[in-house]
């Protein structure tokens, strides 16, 4: 019966304190510890490398050694529940928030969240963005009742830290410079074509987009956004959404929308 050996094998891979499973052998030894260690190392090192590839800016902030040590703990405690590794580590940000050795970098969790959202955008469904001309025909008096469909790649990260600026510096997109760790930034991640773009959202922009994503009309979403941040500017936000290709469809409220 292989099933119980397989179960023991699987558990021992992720737990270095467990003994080498019974029933294994090598021509050189009845207790192939070093050989079993190859599998242990393959599993952990392979998953750590997958996280390295997905979180390059997070790694740059803490350095390769710290990142590898942190990723090993993540791998051991949260092994993949997916066979599609580009979705593995979507919860690394939540893990970092609880990871005591990283406590002195309060923005690190949000940088990891931003990188996970970037990978999601990279693999998201393709869709044509709505051209600006689609809005020129809309009656200004009824525009508030429109509902929009956001691009499938669109993702938002809200942060109590300057997450976009820190990510850009560590992704090599801007020069390193002084940052105020307590300055809030919300990130918009979008891939209207083949390039994933990361932008800093204007005041209330995140609340506006999140409301639209949950099915609110433009007027309802604008009201949410103004509550979130009194500096919210509807015209500027709409223009930004159109220019960045954030929407794929708009539907009048009178239609058959629920």
């Amino acid at each position: 019966m292989f099933a119980p050996i397989q179960a023991e094998f699987a558990c021992a891979l992720l737990d270095p304190d467990r003994p080498v499973p019974q029933g294994l052998r090598a021509y050189t030894s009845q207790r192939p510890t070093r050989r079993f260690a190859v599998y242990r190392n393959n599993v952990v090192a392979g998953l750590v490398n997958a996280l390295r590839a997905k979180f390059p800016a997070t790694m740059r902030i803490v350095g390769d050694d710290f990142f590898a040590a942190m990723a090993r703990v993540f791998v051991m405690t949260r092994p993949p529940r997916t066979r599609i590794l580009h979705t593995y580590g979507d919860d690394l940000g939540d893990f970092i928030e609880e990871f005591a050795p990283a406590a002195e970098l309060p923005y690190l969790a949000d940088v990891a969240r931003l990188e996970a959202v970037r990978t999601r955008a990279y693999h998201a469904a393709d869709a044509e963005s709505l051209p600006a001309a689609a809005f020129s025909a809309v009656d200004p008096h009824t525009i508030g009742s429109l509902r929009v469909t956001l691009h499938p790649s669109l993702g938002i990260v809200r942060s109590r830290h300057p997450v976009v600026t820190i990510w850009m510096m560590n992704a090599g997109e801007v020069e390193f410079g002084p940052v105020n760790e307590n300055e809030r930034e919300d990130a918009l991640v979008l891939r209207p074509g083949m390039q994933v773009a990361v932008r800093k959202l204007p005041a209330g922009g995140a609340a506006f987009l999140l409301a639209l994503a949950s099915g609110a009309t433009l007027a309802e979403a604008a009201s949410c956004a103004a509550t979130d941040d009194p500096d919210f500017d509807l015209t500027a936000n709409l223009a930004g959404m159109i220019l960045s290709g954030a929407m794929t469809a708009c539907t009048p409220a009178e239609g058959s929308m629920p």
Binding site: Q6, A7, A10, C11, L13, L14, Y39, N42, V43, G46, L47, A50, P79, P80, R81, T82, R83, L85, Y88
Partner: peptide
């Protein structure tokens, strides 16, 4: 094994 993907 189970719902854990071991990637090897």
């Amino acid at each position: 094994h189970g719902d854990v993907y071991l990637n090897d």
